[in-house]
């Protein structure tokens, strides 16, 4: 158990928790924006117009090819260099993760919509449902069912990727952990394993309710 006391020294536990809050804040806001913009983007991506299709494709590929780290540099430093606009670290992080999340989300939504057979649309309309009613009662619930596992997957990927934001000066939970390990590296060289265990537990605490919520939602919309 050598080194575990480091977790309880000074304000360390509180600092880890506030680091966790930074992680949660950035990822939840980004995920929220990604869900909204990604759904809209997904609707656009199902367009049959070749120009719109091509634009969406290019956007998606560019976002995927460039590592998130490069995106963080481009937005945090690049925007300032280009326009003089000084974006904060967290704002930049949210922008980057939203650009990325919306693209991935859009592709997931597109896939989910295309997987719904045409006769589902036609029989909805034949029953006199309006287009909005058709989407709300028939199309979205079916799309969501296929979408939920993928969205959860994307969300956990986003949460884990937020660790990169320390490069643009934002101190999230993993960075706090590294600071604690480093501050005690001479007196408690074995603290690292305990700090990482604590962080692992904290990540689990966020991701677990997420997957529980996903399951509940799948049940609600899936039925089977």
């Amino acid at each position: 158990m050598q080194g575990i006391e480091v977790l309880f020294m000074g304000n360390n536990l509180l600092r880890l928790l506030s680091g966790l809050w930074v992680t949660i804040r950035i990822s939840l806001i980004s995920i929220g924006f990604s869900l909204i913009l990604g759904t809209l983007l997904g609707a656009v991506m199902t367009s049959k117009k070749p120009v719109i299709k091509a634009i969406c494709r290019v956007y998606l590929e560019i976002v995927r090819i460039m590592p998130q780290l490069v995106w963080l540099f481009v937005v945090f430093f690049g925007v300032t260099k280009l326009t003089g606009l000084n974006l904060g670290g967290e704002t930049s992080a949210v922008i980057v993760f939203t650009i990325w999340g919306a693209a991935e989300m859009g592709d997931l939504v597109r896939g989910a919509f295309l997987s719904i057979p045409r006769h589902q649309f036609e029989s909805s309309l034949s029953l006199g449902l309006s287009k909005i009613q058709m989407y709300v009662f028939i199309i979205f619930p079916q799309a969501i069912r296929g979408l939920i596992p993928n969205v959860i997957n994307l969300s956990t990927r986003m949460i884990k990727t937020t660790a990169l934001v320390s490069l643009i000066g934002v101190t999230e939970v993993l960075k706090v952990g590294k600071q604690i390990i480093d501050a005690n590296r001479f007196e408690y060289p074995n603290a690292a394993i305990w700090v990482y265990a604590a962080i692992f537990f904290m990540y689990f605490l966020i991701c677990f309710p997420l997957s529980m919520a996903a399951r509940a939602l799948t049940k609600k919309h899936g039925g089977e």
């Binding site: 057979p117 006769h119 589902q120 036609e122 029989s123 909805s124 309309l125 034949s126 029953l127 006199g128 449902l129 309006s130 028939i138 619930p141 079916q142 069912r145 919309h221 899936g222 039925g223």
Partner: peptide
Amino acid sequence: YRIRQKIGMVFQSYDLFPH
């Protein structure tokens, strides 16, 4: 939307809502 309520249509494919 109003007219379609007066016209019932059944298709060849099984078009029930699976959810």
